Simulated assay, not measured.
Amino acid sequence: MEDKRPQFGNRILENVDEVFKHNAWDNVQWNADQEKAAAEKVELNSTVTFSEDRLKDLEENANKHWDAFYDIHQNRFFKDRHWLFTEFPELAPDFNSAPVRVFPDGESKQSTPDRIKHNDEDAHNSKRYIFEIGCGVGNTIFPILQYSQDPNLFIYGCDFSSKAIEIMKQNELYDTKRCEVFVLDATSSDWQVPFAENSLDIIVLIFVLSAIDPTKMTNVIEHIYKYLRPGGLVVFRDYGRYDLAQLRFKKGRCISDNFYARGDNTMVYFFTQEEISNLFKNVGFVEEQNLIDRRLQVNRGKMLTMYRVWIQAKYRKP
């Protein structure tokens, strides 16, 4: 039966004169001049870096900075992750109303939603475990719980910020029969977690690895590999090199190459596809998807164009 769901990812800007016709355009290709201008901007905003004392404060008080962030914003951000089930149908394979993702020619195609078991009887009787690292206040976990009716689904979540976990537990959608969240520094050498090694079906990394010091990223990926079951999946989405957020940094916010501290002292790294590929494959993962999502967002009121660059990937534990 032909899929009648709306498609996502095929709004292509073919005539630049029509740029303000829509709020966003998909798969926008950059020309050499744009790439060069972005590289020059990054070089310029990286010339002044933090002092050793300032870096020490950023690292030692990172949890306090994130607590302050959640204290200010509470749960008033990232409210509608409507793209979640279009990009990652594996998260709620029983939810069939999300738009179908259309990929540009030559990119990795969407993998079939992971049913975990190969026959329906086993799938019906077995528990399905998802773990989100950097769950914040539940902007990924709550939609999964809302849109998936799978009675065997259980979701774990962790965050560096105790404030975020506290806010999430106070939400009326927080159901201890279906989810459990806890405080965890994912960069630590020994994870204290409520599940066994080789037990998780899916681990979610959405805009979280970028908040971690690049020197500690491999340690995080090694732990992910340890706790995923054989055949388990990592779904990943994060900031790409030359994203608008990187180009907007002023001098004096740079920590190291492509790694910055925002004004609120939270940190952010901007990846290339190759870096993500190497991080996961060097630990033993098999790459199923690694694509760059270039989006042109338009503010029609102010007549502004904003180029976003995200990297999306999926990695399977053999």
Rank of each mutant, 00 (worst) to 15 (best):
E2P: 07
R5L: 01
R5N: 01
P6A: 06
D17K: 13
V19A: 14
N27K: 11
W30T: 06
N31L: 03
A32W: 11
V48G: 05
V48S: 09
V48E: 15
L55P: 05
D57E: 15
L58D: 10
H65N: 07
W66L: 02
A68M: 03
I72C: 08
K79W: 10
W83L: 01
P93S: 05
N96D: 11
D105K: 14
E107G: 00
K109A: 00
T112D: 09
H118F: 08
D120Y: 10
E121H: 03
H124P: 00
G138K: 09
G138I: 08
L145V: 05
F154E: 06
D159C: 03
K163W: 08
I165V: 10
L173A: 15
Y174H: 15
T176M: 12
K177V: 01
R178C: 13
C179T: 12
D185A: 09
S189C: 06
P194T: 03
A196D: 15
E197V: 09
N198C: 12
N198V: 10
V208L: 09
L209Y: 09
D213T: 13
T215H: 14
M217F: 02
M217Q: 15
I221K: 05
Y225Q: 06
R229S: 08
G232Q: 01
V234N: 04
V235Q: 00
G240C: 06
D243M: 05
A245Y: 13
D257I: 08
A261C: 04
D264W: 03
M267G: 02
F270E: 04
E274G: 02
K281E: 06
V286Q: 14
Q289W: 05
N290Y: 10
I292R: 13
V298W: 09
V298I: 15
L304C: 04
L304P: 01
T305K: 11
Y307V: 00
W310F: 11
A313M: 10
K314W: 04
Y315L: 10
K317F: 00
K317H: 00
